[in-house]
Design a protein around this nucleic acid. Structure first.
Lengths: 210, 210
DNA sequence: AAGTGTGAACAAGTTCACAGCC
DNA sequence: GGCTGTGAACTTGTTCACACTT
């Protein structure tokens, strides 16, 4: 805890947590950095160093208590609490997001859905009403959420992000292909599958003989 | 071209390309690394250095020809050709993927859809038939694709990946929360929004007073 | 005057290797 | 004997700063 923790380390923690969570449910008591690394494709030294930023959770000669380490990571990542989420944009992608059980299962409660389309507004998705996007700002002011997931058409992504920022959302996950801006105190991630495909074709081209 | 090009550089190229593509369609003739950087939140030096791995595309005192640089990146990334894609798993997410116009628009042709559910097999999505997943292996052998997009339930992700690898798919985009393995000659990327949310809550926790 | 291309300086991130503990 | 925790060595990636070109 003394010095600044590298961002890459934070990004790997959820990966470790996911595996530990699985091992925990399989009733596994103890695990070594060796085993964790083999399963995740990461060196054991990397795992030990990453964890050492947060404390000394292992026992020499034994390894890590799965239960203990999972609990520590839960605490570090804030997964011992529930987080309130709004999904903005209920097209095909937004609907897939709103229906995905993996969010609720991991402590993320999707409490509000918004769209601009009159045919969608008022309808129900997984028992939640789709609300008019024009009410987003007022709703969030009355009853804030922690995280906004943006799945609107790209052209309006920045507008939605601005509204979320004004309403003091702390984190934004942008599924839109457009890159958006937010002040540094707001956590922002982009999910753009096309960029992944395009970096993969670079390699494909080379493997498949230019 | 002389030495090995860092992986991070390849990952940034599509980002640059996307912006250049937009500038090109706006009729912009010339752009500086300064401007590109400001738009993308990257330092100008970074952009110049990244591009310098591939050639000398700029003109001192002027900047880069938008048209020329876009064409170069297209060539480098292999976006001057079309790529054949199969989507495996046509649940809500798979359907969103199969219907997303952003893939076709960028040179990725989704030519085959597969699912295991009898109610889906034989149905049509955007004019493409959903085929039985048991035919995947044979189909790919007869008529290969370059890229597989996996959107099946997590438990069967590795099986599907193994089939794709056997059928000599060159790249796999895994939308499943399960981490899968593939030999190093196959390009593999994971899209897992839950991991993003979990690293964001780490920061949220700290900003929102522990 | 403006802006690239790039070696050299610097910063960040990873792996090594081993002392120390179980 | 086995495995953690961690400085130190190394590797990778980023930024600086300036010579050079238009």
């Amino acid at each position: 805890m003394p010095i600044e923790i590298p961002e890459v380390v934070i990004d790997r923690l959820p990966l470790y947590y996911r595996l530990l969570s699985r091992l925990e449910s399989e009733g596994r008591a103890v695990v070594s950095s060796q085993e964790l690394g083999a399963e995740l494709g990461v060196t054991p030294a990397q795992i030990r160093k990453d964890l050492s930023y947060f404390g000394r959770f292992g026992k020499q000669g034994r390894g890590y208590s799965v239960h203990r380490l999972a609990a520590e990571l839960r605490q570090i990542l804030g997964l011992d609490q529930r987080w309130r989420v709004a999904v903005i944009g209920i097209g095909r992608l937004g609907r897939a997001i709103a229906s995905y059980p993996g969010f609720e299962g991991q402590g993320f409660d999707i409490i509000w859905l918004y769209d601009a389309s009159p045919t969608l507004i008022g309808s129900e998705i997984e028992g939640r009403e789709v609300r008019d996007i024009s009410q987003l700002e007022g709703d969030l002011r009355a009853d804030p959420v922690d995280i906004g997931i943006v799945a609107v058409p790209g052209e309006v992504a920045q507008d939605v992000v601005d509204t979320l920022v004004d309403a003091h959302v702390g984190a934004i996950l942008n599924y839109t292909p457009n890159r958006v801006q937010a002040p540094p105190e707001v956590e922002l991630r982009h999910i753009n599958p096309v960029l992944f495909l395009q970096s993969m074709t670079y390699h494909l081209k080379r493997v498949r003989g230019v």
